[in-house]
């Protein structure tokens, strides 16, 4: 643990149960935010990719708290849904959700992240049971998820879904659009891509570096069914994911949910200066400031 100060007392306000209510999903998202801040403070390297982790907290809460059909006791359970975290640098968010779901003991979040020889690496890796693909090389995740979805079709597993959570930065990689074309060509209506559209790429806004608009039209042109939601609205996310799971919605078309989010969401000084909070270090003062904003 790099953080030299002490962790504040963080009450567990969300525990696993099937199908959380919207109010419970909001609690889960708040807990994920607190955990991300704690992980960042305790990180062995002194940092994590905190900005893009905070922007996707509600997305991850709804995925793990509502949508994903998983079995922590049997991580490779043949009937499970698959989530590929394309934005693999935001692994801390995934780890917090996995701990909530019971893939490993929660305390390890604050002892094992970015520490040599420990369980949780900065970019996620299949060494940790429950992680479905080693990601971090941007743009590769959607193609990997196409492969999972295609196999589910091939193996006649109509109840399974493949999800890819990708970043908007990844959408500037050509590989993402090759994956989009492939998914449509293969008719993967069991593939759901979720884009954390926080409008920032490390050092600038997407508008300055590579404007993705008209974003919806791009995906539609690739023959994807497109939903666009406020990525911090758990109800809108839940309803969009429910629609996208339905085969009758747009037969033969992969689905994408474009989530408008704020980088650093939930921490005011990060939101106001998002360009400096792609990755970041939290000293004890900043850590406590964050936790205060998160109600502690």
């Amino acid at each position: 643990m790099v953080g030299t100060g002490s962790l504040v007392d963080v009450p567990v306000i969300s525990r696993y149960k099937e199908r959380l209510s919207d109010a419970e999903l909001m609690d889960f998202a708040l807990q994920l935010r607190r955990d991300i801040i704690g992980l960042t403070f305790c990180s062995g390297t002194g940092s994590s990719h905190v900005g893009g982790e905070l922007s996707a907290a509600e997305i991850m809460a709804v995925l793990y708290g509502h949508a994903l059909n998983l079995c922590p006791e049997e991580p490779e359970w043949a009937e499970r849904d698959v989530l590929v975290l394309g934005k693999g640098h935001c692994a801390a968010l995934l780890y917090a959700a996995m701990a909530w779901r019971g893939f490993f003991e929660r305390g390890r979040l604050f002892t094992d992240f970015n520490v040599a020889g420990k369980l949780l690496q900065e970019h996620c890796n299949m060494e940790l049971p429950g992680v479905e693909a080693p990601t971090g090389s941007l743009g590769m995740g959607l193609s990997n998820a196409c492969g999972y979805a295609w196999c589910m079709k091939h193996d006649a597993q109509p109840n399974r879904r493949a999800y890819a959570l990708i970043g908007d930065g990844e959408c500037t990689e050509g590989q993402t659009w090759e994956g989009a074309a492939l998914g449509a060509q293969l008719g993967l209506d069991n593939l759901i891509c979720i884009v954390d559209y926080n409008k920032y790429i490390i050092s600038s806004t997407t508008y300055e570096v590579c404007d993705l608009e008209p974003f919806e039209e791009r995906w539609k042109a690739f023959r994807w069914h497109v939903e666009r939601v406020d990525g911090h609205d758990v109800r809108a996310l839940r309803e969009a994911l429910d629609r996208c799971r339905e085969p009758s919605l747009a037969p033969g078309c992969p689905r994408v949910i474009l989530c408008d989010t704020r980088k650093g969401a939930g921490i005011s000084f990060m939101e106001e200066d998002a360009v400096h909070w792609h990755a970041g270090h939290l000293d004890e003062e900043l850590y406590k400031k964050c936790m205060k904003e998160l109600g502690l």
């Binding site: 500037t172 570096v209 590579c210």
Partner: peptide, 9 residues
Amino acid sequence: RSTPISEAA
């Protein structure tokens, strides 16, 4: 000039 995350391009 900064570029997108698009090495091939």
